[in-house]
Design a protein around this nucleic acid. Structure first.
Lengths: 205, 205
DNA sequence: CGAATAAGGTAGTAATCAGTCACTATCTAA
DNA sequence: TTAGATAGTGACTGATTACTACCTTATTCG
Protein backbone atom coordinates (compact mmCIF):
# COMPACT_ATOMS: atom_id res chain seq x y z
CA UNK A 1 0.00 0.00 0.00
CA UNK A 2 2.86 2.38 0.75
CA UNK A 3 5.48 3.80 -1.55
CA UNK A 4 8.76 1.97 -1.58
CA UNK A 5 10.39 5.40 -1.74
CA UNK A 6 13.21 5.21 -4.27
CA UNK A 7 13.95 8.71 -3.09
CA UNK A 8 15.25 11.76 -4.71
CA UNK A 9 17.67 12.40 -7.49
CA UNK A 10 16.71 9.84 -10.07
CA UNK A 11 18.00 10.14 -13.59
CA UNK A 12 15.44 11.37 -16.08
CA UNK A 13 14.52 7.97 -17.50
CA UNK A 14 13.90 6.39 -14.12
CA UNK A 15 11.93 9.42 -12.97
CA UNK A 16 9.73 9.35 -16.03
CA UNK A 17 9.00 5.69 -15.41
CA UNK A 18 8.18 6.41 -11.80
CA UNK A 19 5.80 9.19 -12.77
CA UNK A 20 3.94 6.77 -15.04
CA UNK A 21 3.85 4.20 -12.25
CA UNK A 22 2.51 6.47 -9.53
CA UNK A 23 0.03 8.01 -11.95
CA UNK A 24 -1.45 4.57 -12.60
CA UNK A 25 -1.48 3.84 -8.88
CA UNK A 26 -3.20 7.10 -8.06
CA UNK A 27 -5.72 6.65 -10.86
CA UNK A 28 -6.72 3.32 -9.34
CA UNK A 29 -7.12 4.84 -5.90
CA UNK A 30 -8.82 8.16 -6.56
CA UNK A 31 -10.09 8.08 -10.14
CA UNK A 32 -8.41 9.06 -13.39
CA UNK A 33 -9.56 12.65 -13.50
CA UNK A 34 -8.85 13.40 -9.87
CA UNK A 35 -5.12 12.78 -10.13
CA UNK A 36 -3.23 16.08 -9.82
CA UNK A 37 0.42 16.77 -10.49
CA UNK A 38 0.65 17.63 -6.81
CA UNK A 39 -0.55 14.13 -5.95
CA UNK A 40 2.05 12.60 -8.25
CA UNK A 41 4.85 14.64 -6.72
CA UNK A 42 3.75 13.77 -3.20
CA UNK A 43 3.63 10.06 -4.02
CA UNK A 44 7.24 10.27 -5.20
CA UNK A 45 8.51 12.50 -2.42
CA UNK A 46 9.41 15.45 -4.64
CA UNK A 47 7.88 18.86 -5.18
CA UNK A 48 5.25 19.58 -7.79
CA UNK A 49 7.53 21.65 -9.97
CA UNK A 50 9.87 18.70 -10.42
CA UNK A 51 7.21 16.81 -12.35
CA UNK A 52 7.37 19.36 -15.15
CA UNK A 53 11.07 18.90 -15.64
CA UNK A 54 10.29 15.48 -17.11
CA UNK A 55 7.04 16.12 -18.97
CA UNK A 56 6.03 19.29 -20.78
CA UNK A 57 2.39 18.96 -19.76
CA UNK A 58 -0.03 16.76 -17.91
CA UNK A 59 -1.43 15.48 -21.19
CA UNK A 60 2.04 14.25 -22.05
CA UNK A 61 2.05 12.26 -18.82
CA UNK A 62 -1.25 10.61 -19.71
CA UNK A 63 0.07 9.84 -23.16
CA UNK A 64 3.09 8.13 -21.62
CA UNK A 65 0.78 6.19 -19.31
CA UNK A 66 -1.30 5.12 -22.29
CA UNK A 67 1.79 3.92 -24.14
CA UNK A 68 2.86 1.98 -21.09
CA UNK A 69 -0.56 0.35 -20.89
CA UNK A 70 -0.60 -0.49 -24.58
CA UNK A 71 2.86 -2.04 -24.56
CA UNK A 72 2.39 -4.12 -21.44
CA UNK A 73 -1.14 -5.19 -22.20
CA UNK A 74 -0.38 -6.24 -25.75
CA UNK A 75 2.68 -8.16 -24.60
CA UNK A 76 0.68 -9.98 -21.93
CA UNK A 77 -2.14 -10.82 -24.32
CA UNK A 78 0.20 -11.97 -27.04
CA UNK A 79 2.16 -14.22 -24.70
CA UNK A 80 -1.04 -15.78 -23.38
CA UNK A 81 -2.58 -16.31 -26.80
CA UNK A 82 0.40 -18.06 -28.34
CA UNK A 83 0.27 -20.75 -25.67
CA UNK A 84 -3.20 -21.80 -26.81
CA UNK A 85 -3.53 -25.22 -28.41
CA UNK A 86 -6.31 -24.02 -30.68
CA UNK A 87 -7.91 -20.61 -31.43
CA UNK A 88 -10.61 -20.91 -28.77
CA UNK A 89 -8.12 -22.06 -26.18
CA UNK A 90 -5.99 -19.07 -27.12
CA UNK A 91 -8.98 -16.78 -26.64
CA UNK A 92 -9.68 -18.27 -23.22
CA UNK A 93 -6.06 -17.82 -22.17
CA UNK A 94 -6.05 -14.27 -23.46
CA UNK A 95 -9.19 -13.49 -21.52
CA UNK A 96 -7.79 -14.93 -18.31
CA UNK A 97 -4.55 -13.05 -18.79
CA UNK A 98 -6.43 -9.82 -19.34
CA UNK A 99 -8.49 -10.31 -16.18
CA UNK A 100 -5.34 -11.09 -14.20
CA UNK A 101 -3.62 -8.01 -15.59
CA UNK A 102 -6.57 -5.82 -14.68
CA UNK A 103 -6.66 -7.29 -11.20
CA UNK A 104 -2.99 -6.39 -10.81
CA UNK A 105 -3.44 -2.91 -12.34
CA UNK A 106 -7.01 -1.81 -11.67
CA UNK A 107 -6.48 1.58 -13.27
CA UNK A 108 -5.95 0.15 -16.74
CA UNK A 109 -9.55 -0.17 -17.86
CA UNK A 110 -10.36 3.17 -16.27
CA UNK A 111 -7.64 4.87 -18.25
CA UNK A 112 -8.73 3.23 -21.50
CA UNK A 113 -12.40 4.06 -21.08
CA UNK A 114 -12.02 7.47 -19.46
CA UNK A 115 -14.10 9.95 -21.38
CA UNK A 116 -12.15 12.67 -19.60
CA UNK A 117 -8.96 11.55 -21.33
CA UNK A 118 -10.60 10.94 -24.70
CA UNK A 119 -11.72 14.53 -24.87
CA UNK A 120 -8.45 16.01 -23.66
CA UNK A 121 -6.27 15.53 -26.69
CA UNK A 122 -6.54 14.10 -30.16
CA UNK A 123 -3.40 12.03 -29.59
CA UNK A 124 -4.88 10.33 -26.54
CA UNK A 125 -8.13 9.59 -28.30
CA UNK A 126 -6.30 8.18 -31.28
CA UNK A 127 -4.14 5.91 -29.15
CA UNK A 128 -7.13 4.51 -27.28
CA UNK A 129 -8.91 3.92 -30.56
CA UNK A 130 -5.87 2.14 -31.93
CA UNK A 131 -5.66 -0.11 -28.87
CA UNK A 132 -9.34 -0.96 -29.02
CA UNK A 133 -9.42 -1.66 -32.74
CA UNK A 134 -6.24 -3.71 -32.48
CA UNK A 135 -7.68 -5.77 -29.65
CA UNK A 136 -10.93 -6.27 -31.49
CA UNK A 137 -9.10 -7.35 -34.63
CA UNK A 138 -7.07 -9.84 -32.62
CA UNK A 139 -10.19 -11.37 -31.08
CA UNK A 140 -12.00 -11.41 -34.42
CA UNK A 141 -8.96 -13.09 -35.98
CA UNK A 142 -8.99 -15.86 -33.40
CA UNK A 143 -12.70 -16.36 -33.96
CA UNK A 144 -12.23 -16.57 -37.71
CA UNK A 145 -9.50 -19.13 -37.19
CA UNK A 146 -11.83 -21.06 -34.91
CA UNK A 147 -14.46 -21.03 -37.64
CA UNK A 148 -11.93 -22.39 -40.13
CA UNK A 149 -11.17 -25.28 -37.79
CA UNK A 150 -14.83 -25.98 -37.13
CA UNK A 151 -14.51 -24.90 -33.49
CA UNK A 152 -16.90 -22.00 -33.97
CA UNK A 153 -20.26 -21.90 -35.73
CA UNK A 154 -19.86 -21.23 -39.43
CA UNK A 155 -22.35 -18.36 -39.44
CA UNK A 156 -20.70 -16.50 -36.55
CA UNK A 157 -20.30 -12.74 -37.02
CA UNK A 158 -16.73 -12.53 -35.74
CA UNK A 159 -16.70 -8.74 -35.60
CA UNK A 160 -19.89 -8.60 -33.56
CA UNK A 161 -18.64 -11.36 -31.31
CA UNK A 162 -15.43 -9.42 -30.70
CA UNK A 163 -17.51 -6.40 -29.71
CA UNK A 164 -19.38 -8.61 -27.29
CA UNK A 165 -16.09 -9.93 -25.89
CA UNK A 166 -14.75 -6.46 -25.19
CA UNK A 167 -18.06 -5.40 -23.69
CA UNK A 168 -17.96 -8.43 -21.42
CA UNK A 169 -14.70 -7.20 -19.92
CA UNK A 170 -16.11 -3.71 -19.47
CA UNK A 171 -19.19 -5.05 -17.76
CA UNK A 172 -17.15 -7.17 -15.40
CA UNK A 173 -14.94 -4.23 -14.52
CA UNK A 174 -17.87 -1.94 -13.81
CA UNK A 175 -19.50 -4.54 -11.59
CA UNK A 176 -16.31 -5.14 -9.67
CA UNK A 177 -15.81 -1.40 -9.30
CA UNK A 178 -19.32 -0.68 -8.04
CA UNK A 179 -19.61 -3.74 -5.83
CA UNK A 180 -16.10 -3.57 -4.47
CA UNK A 181 -15.64 -6.62 -2.34
CA UNK A 182 -19.10 -8.09 -2.77
CA UNK A 183 -18.16 -9.60 -6.11
CA UNK A 184 -14.65 -10.36 -7.16
CA UNK A 185 -13.55 -9.73 -10.70
CA UNK A 186 -11.95 -13.12 -11.20
CA UNK A 187 -14.87 -15.13 -9.91
CA UNK A 188 -17.42 -13.28 -12.02
CA UNK A 189 -15.15 -13.49 -15.03
CA UNK A 190 -14.90 -17.25 -14.63
CA UNK A 191 -18.68 -17.50 -14.64
CA UNK A 192 -19.29 -15.16 -17.54
CA UNK A 193 -16.75 -16.36 -20.09
CA UNK A 194 -18.40 -19.76 -20.60
CA UNK A 195 -21.65 -17.99 -21.44
CA UNK A 196 -19.83 -16.00 -24.09
CA UNK A 197 -18.31 -19.20 -25.43
CA UNK A 198 -21.78 -20.66 -25.95
CA UNK A 199 -22.45 -17.87 -28.42
CA UNK A 200 -19.42 -18.95 -30.40
CA UNK A 201 -19.53 -22.73 -30.30
CA UNK A 202 -21.12 -24.68 -33.12
CA UNK A 203 -24.68 -25.94 -32.52
CA UNK A 204 -24.00 -29.68 -32.55
CA UNK A 205 -20.92 -31.20 -31.00
CA UNK B 1 -28.05 21.62 -31.50
CA UNK B 2 -28.91 25.09 -30.20
CA UNK B 3 -30.79 26.01 -27.07
CA UNK B 4 -34.47 26.65 -27.52
CA UNK B 5 -34.04 29.37 -24.92
CA UNK B 6 -37.05 29.12 -22.62
CA UNK B 7 -35.74 32.33 -21.22
CA UNK B 8 -35.64 33.84 -17.85
CA UNK B 9 -37.86 33.82 -14.85
CA UNK B 10 -39.02 30.24 -14.62
CA UNK B 11 -40.64 28.97 -11.45
CA UNK B 12 -38.41 26.78 -9.32
CA UNK B 13 -39.76 23.44 -10.51
CA UNK B 14 -39.37 24.26 -14.17
CA UNK B 15 -35.90 25.67 -13.58
CA UNK B 16 -34.79 22.59 -11.74
CA UNK B 17 -35.99 20.45 -14.60
CA UNK B 18 -34.18 22.63 -17.07
CA UNK B 19 -30.97 22.40 -15.09
CA UNK B 20 -31.19 18.62 -15.24
CA UNK B 21 -31.88 18.77 -18.97
CA UNK B 22 -28.99 21.07 -19.88
CA UNK B 23 -26.66 19.15 -17.59
CA UNK B 24 -27.39 15.97 -19.53
CA UNK B 25 -26.97 17.83 -22.82
CA UNK B 26 -23.66 19.30 -21.76
CA UNK B 27 -22.43 15.98 -20.43
CA UNK B 28 -23.03 14.46 -23.85
CA UNK B 29 -21.16 17.26 -25.58
CA UNK B 30 -18.15 17.84 -23.35
CA UNK B 31 -17.95 14.93 -20.95
CA UNK B 32 -19.48 14.37 -17.54
CA UNK B 33 -16.68 15.76 -15.45
CA UNK B 34 -16.08 18.82 -17.59
CA UNK B 35 -19.52 20.28 -17.04
CA UNK B 36 -19.27 23.37 -14.85
CA UNK B 37 -22.05 25.32 -13.18
CA UNK B 38 -20.99 28.21 -15.40
CA UNK B 39 -21.68 26.06 -18.47
CA UNK B 40 -25.11 25.15 -17.17
CA UNK B 41 -26.01 28.77 -16.50
CA UNK B 42 -24.80 29.85 -19.91
CA UNK B 43 -26.83 27.13 -21.64
CA UNK B 44 -29.94 28.44 -19.90
CA UNK B 45 -29.24 32.12 -20.38
CA UNK B 46 -28.89 32.95 -16.70
CA UNK B 47 -25.94 33.79 -14.49
CA UNK B 48 -23.97 31.20 -12.59
CA UNK B 49 -25.18 32.27 -9.17
CA UNK B 50 -28.77 31.55 -10.19
CA UNK B 51 -28.01 27.84 -10.41
CA UNK B 52 -27.39 27.66 -6.67
CA UNK B 53 -30.79 29.10 -5.83
CA UNK B 54 -32.26 25.79 -6.98
CA UNK B 55 -29.67 23.26 -5.85
CA UNK B 56 -27.58 23.42 -2.68
CA UNK B 57 -24.53 21.92 -4.40
CA UNK B 58 -23.29 20.50 -7.66
CA UNK B 59 -23.50 16.99 -6.25
CA UNK B 60 -27.19 17.59 -5.66
CA UNK B 61 -27.56 18.44 -9.35
CA UNK B 62 -25.90 15.18 -10.35
CA UNK B 63 -28.12 13.31 -7.94
CA UNK B 64 -31.19 14.87 -9.56
CA UNK B 65 -29.82 13.95 -12.99
CA UNK B 66 -29.29 10.39 -11.85
CA UNK B 67 -32.85 10.19 -10.53
CA UNK B 68 -34.12 11.52 -13.83
CA UNK B 69 -32.14 8.89 -15.69
CA UNK B 70 -33.34 6.09 -13.44
CA UNK B 71 -37.00 7.05 -13.68
CA UNK B 72 -37.05 7.54 -17.44
CA UNK B 73 -34.87 4.58 -18.27
CA UNK B 74 -36.81 2.18 -16.09
CA UNK B 75 -40.09 3.41 -17.51
CA UNK B 76 -38.86 2.97 -21.08
CA UNK B 77 -37.48 -0.50 -20.39
CA UNK B 78 -40.61 -1.61 -18.56
CA UNK B 79 -42.91 -0.41 -21.31
CA UNK B 80 -40.83 -2.16 -23.97
CA UNK B 81 -40.57 -5.43 -22.05
CA UNK B 82 -44.27 -5.81 -21.36
CA UNK B 83 -45.02 -5.76 -25.08
CA UNK B 84 -42.96 -8.90 -25.62
CA UNK B 85 -44.84 -12.04 -26.61
CA UNK B 86 -42.39 -14.24 -24.75
CA UNK B 87 -39.43 -13.60 -22.41
CA UNK B 88 -36.81 -13.55 -25.16
CA UNK B 89 -38.92 -11.25 -27.29
CA UNK B 90 -39.29 -8.99 -24.26
CA UNK B 91 -35.53 -8.99 -23.81
CA UNK B 92 -35.00 -8.08 -27.46
CA UNK B 93 -37.51 -5.22 -27.22
CA UNK B 94 -35.92 -4.00 -24.01
CA UNK B 95 -32.52 -4.00 -25.64
CA UNK B 96 -33.76 -2.09 -28.68
CA UNK B 97 -35.53 0.42 -26.45
CA UNK B 98 -32.38 0.92 -24.41
CA UNK B 99 -30.29 1.53 -27.52
CA UNK B 100 -32.87 3.99 -28.83
CA UNK B 101 -32.93 5.79 -25.51
CA UNK B 102 -29.15 6.03 -25.44
CA UNK B 103 -29.13 7.33 -29.01
CA UNK B 104 -31.57 10.05 -27.97
CA UNK B 105 -29.68 10.82 -24.75
CA UNK B 106 -26.03 9.95 -25.31
CA UNK B 107 -24.99 11.18 -21.88
CA UNK B 108 -26.93 8.51 -20.05
CA UNK B 109 -24.39 5.69 -20.15
CA UNK B 110 -21.61 8.17 -19.43
CA UNK B 111 -23.36 9.37 -16.31
CA UNK B 112 -24.03 5.84 -15.11
CA UNK B 113 -20.48 4.62 -15.65
CA UNK B 114 -18.64 7.79 -14.67
CA UNK B 115 -16.03 6.92 -12.12
CA UNK B 116 -15.80 10.63 -11.37
CA UNK B 117 -19.40 10.62 -10.11
CA UNK B 118 -19.08 7.28 -8.30
CA UNK B 119 -16.29 8.67 -6.17
CA UNK B 120 -17.96 12.03 -5.50
CA UNK B 121 -20.64 11.01 -3.04
CA UNK B 122 -21.89 7.88 -1.39
CA UNK B 123 -25.44 8.71 -2.45
CA UNK B 124 -24.50 8.84 -6.12
CA UNK B 125 -22.60 5.59 -5.92
CA UNK B 126 -25.47 3.88 -4.17
CA UNK B 127 -28.00 5.05 -6.74
CA UNK B 128 -25.89 3.81 -9.64
CA UNK B 129 -25.44 0.48 -7.92
CA UNK B 130 -29.16 0.23 -7.36
CA UNK B 131 -29.89 0.96 -11.02
CA UNK B 132 -27.33 -1.60 -12.21
CA UNK B 133 -28.43 -4.36 -9.86
CA UNK B 134 -32.06 -3.68 -10.67
CA UNK B 135 -31.38 -3.86 -14.37
CA UNK B 136 -29.37 -7.02 -14.01
CA UNK B 137 -32.10 -8.65 -11.94
CA UNK B 138 -34.66 -7.73 -14.57
CA UNK B 139 -32.59 -9.31 -17.34
CA UNK B 140 -31.83 -12.38 -15.24
CA UNK B 141 -35.54 -12.71 -14.49
CA UNK B 142 -36.45 -12.70 -18.17
CA UNK B 143 -33.79 -15.29 -18.84
CA UNK B 144 -35.07 -17.53 -16.05
CA UNK B 145 -38.56 -17.22 -17.48
CA UNK B 146 -37.18 -18.13 -20.89
CA UNK B 147 -35.59 -21.21 -19.37
CA UNK B 148 -38.90 -22.21 -17.82
CA UNK B 149 -40.56 -22.00 -21.24
CA UNK B 150 -37.80 -23.91 -22.95
CA UNK B 151 -36.71 -20.85 -24.91
CA UNK B 152 -33.33 -20.76 -23.26
CA UNK B 153 -30.88 -23.57 -22.59
CA UNK B 154 -31.63 -25.29 -19.30
CA UNK B 155 -28.08 -24.99 -18.00
CA UNK B 156 -27.83 -21.24 -18.65
CA UNK B 157 -26.26 -19.16 -15.87
CA UNK B 158 -28.81 -16.34 -15.96
CA UNK B 159 -26.81 -14.08 -13.68
CA UNK B 160 -23.68 -14.40 -15.79
CA UNK B 161 -25.69 -13.90 -18.97
CA UNK B 162 -27.19 -10.72 -17.52
CA UNK B 163 -23.67 -9.47 -16.79
CA UNK B 164 -22.78 -10.20 -20.40
CA UNK B 165 -25.88 -8.35 -21.59
CA UNK B 166 -25.01 -5.20 -19.66
CA UNK B 167 -21.41 -5.41 -20.80
CA UNK B 168 -22.60 -5.69 -24.39
CA UNK B 169 -24.32 -2.32 -24.06
CA UNK B 170 -21.21 -0.78 -22.52
CA UNK B 171 -19.03 -2.13 -25.29
CA UNK B 172 -21.35 -0.78 -27.96
CA UNK B 173 -21.42 2.63 -26.31
CA UNK B 174 -17.65 2.81 -26.04
CA UNK B 175 -17.21 1.87 -29.68
CA UNK B 176 -19.74 4.42 -30.83
CA UNK B 177 -18.10 7.06 -28.66
CA UNK B 178 -14.58 6.39 -29.90
CA UNK B 179 -15.50 5.87 -33.55
CA UNK B 180 -17.99 8.69 -33.71
CA UNK B 181 -19.55 8.50 -37.13
CA UNK B 182 -17.58 5.55 -38.43
CA UNK B 183 -19.84 3.10 -36.66
CA UNK B 184 -23.36 3.87 -35.61
CA UNK B 185 -24.68 2.61 -32.32
CA UNK B 186 -27.90 1.20 -33.73
CA UNK B 187 -26.27 -0.68 -36.60
CA UNK B 188 -23.64 -2.28 -34.38
CA UNK B 189 -26.25 -3.10 -31.78
CA UNK B 190 -28.36 -4.87 -34.38
CA UNK B 191 -25.39 -7.02 -35.32
CA UNK B 192 -24.26 -7.81 -31.80
CA UNK B 193 -27.53 -8.74 -30.10
CA UNK B 194 -28.06 -11.89 -32.21
CA UNK B 195 -24.64 -13.12 -31.15
CA UNK B 196 -25.66 -12.67 -27.53
CA UNK B 197 -28.88 -14.54 -28.21
CA UNK B 198 -26.91 -17.54 -29.46
CA UNK B 199 -25.38 -17.83 -26.01
CA UNK B 200 -28.88 -18.10 -24.56
CA UNK B 201 -30.77 -20.25 -27.01
CA UNK B 202 -31.10 -24.00 -26.46
CA UNK B 203 -28.71 -26.23 -28.46
CA UNK B 204 -31.26 -27.98 -30.66
CA UNK B 205 -34.24 -26.22 -32.19
C1' DC C 1 -52.79 49.17 -6.52
C1' DG C 2 -49.22 47.76 -3.52
C1' DA C 3 -46.80 44.73 -0.66
C1' DA C 4 -45.02 40.19 -0.10
C1' DT C 5 -42.65 36.56 -2.35
C1' DA C 6 -39.69 34.39 -5.30
C1' DA C 7 -36.11 34.43 -9.12
C1' DG C 8 -32.20 36.46 -11.07
C1' DG C 9 -28.08 39.72 -11.17
C1' DT C 10 -23.66 41.47 -9.42
C1' DA C 11 -19.69 40.87 -7.43
C1' DG C 12 -17.36 38.81 -4.87
C1' DT C 13 -14.72 34.58 -1.98
C1' DA C 14 -11.21 30.91 -0.94
C1' DA C 15 -9.43 26.93 -2.84
C1' DT C 16 -7.30 24.38 -6.34
C1' DC C 17 -5.15 23.69 -10.57
C1' DA C 18 -1.33 23.31 -14.34
C1' DG C 19 2.55 25.42 -15.57
C1' DT C 20 6.90 28.80 -14.94
C1' DC C 21 11.26 30.35 -13.38
C1' DA C 22 15.29 31.64 -10.92
C1' DC C 23 17.97 29.34 -7.88
C1' DT C 24 20.40 25.40 -5.39
C1' DA C 25 22.10 20.83 -4.49
C1' DT C 26 24.04 16.82 -6.30
C1' DC C 27 26.37 14.00 -9.53
C1' DT C 28 29.97 13.11 -13.12
C1' DA C 29 34.03 13.44 -15.71
C1' DA C 30 38.26 15.59 -17.01
C1' DT D 1 39.53 19.20 -7.47
C1' DT D 2 36.80 21.60 -10.04
C1' DA D 3 33.60 22.78 -13.82
C1' DG D 4 29.69 21.60 -16.35
C1' DA D 5 25.47 19.24 -16.48
C1' DT D 6 21.30 17.89 -14.51
C1' DA D 7 17.57 16.98 -10.97
C1' DG D 8 14.99 19.20 -7.58
C1' DT D 9 13.31 23.37 -4.76
C1' DG D 10 10.35 27.07 -3.59
C1' DA D 11 7.78 30.62 -4.55
C1' DC D 12 5.01 32.40 -7.88
C1' DT D 13 1.14 33.06 -11.54
C1' DG D 14 -3.12 33.36 -13.92
C1' DA D 15 -7.04 30.78 -14.80
C1' DT D 16 -10.85 28.23 -13.18
C1' DT D 17 -13.76 26.29 -9.82
C1' DA D 18 -17.94 25.75 -6.53
C1' DC D 19 -20.27 28.49 -3.66
C1' DT D 20 -22.08 32.97 -1.11
C1' DA D 21 -24.10 37.58 0.30
C1' DC D 22 -26.38 41.31 -0.85
C1' DC D 23 -29.14 43.72 -3.96
C1' DT D 24 -32.64 44.23 -7.87
C1' DT D 25 -36.47 43.01 -10.54
C1' DA D 26 -40.49 40.45 -11.89
C1' DT D 27 -44.72 38.02 -10.57
C1' DT D 28 -48.72 37.24 -7.77
C1' DC D 29 -52.53 38.05 -4.98
C1' DG D 30 -55.19 40.34 -1.35
Amino acid sequence: MAEDTPRKRLDADARREEIVRVTLDLAAKQGVDDVTTQDMAQAMGVTQGAVFRHFPSKDAIWLAVMHWVRDRLMAVLGRAAEQGRDPLDALARMFAAHIDFIAAHPAIPRVLTSEHLHTRSQALRQLVTEIMLGYEARVAGLLEAAKAEGLARADLDAHAAATLYIGMIQGLVLQASLLRGHRTLKAEAARTFPVFLQAVRPPNP
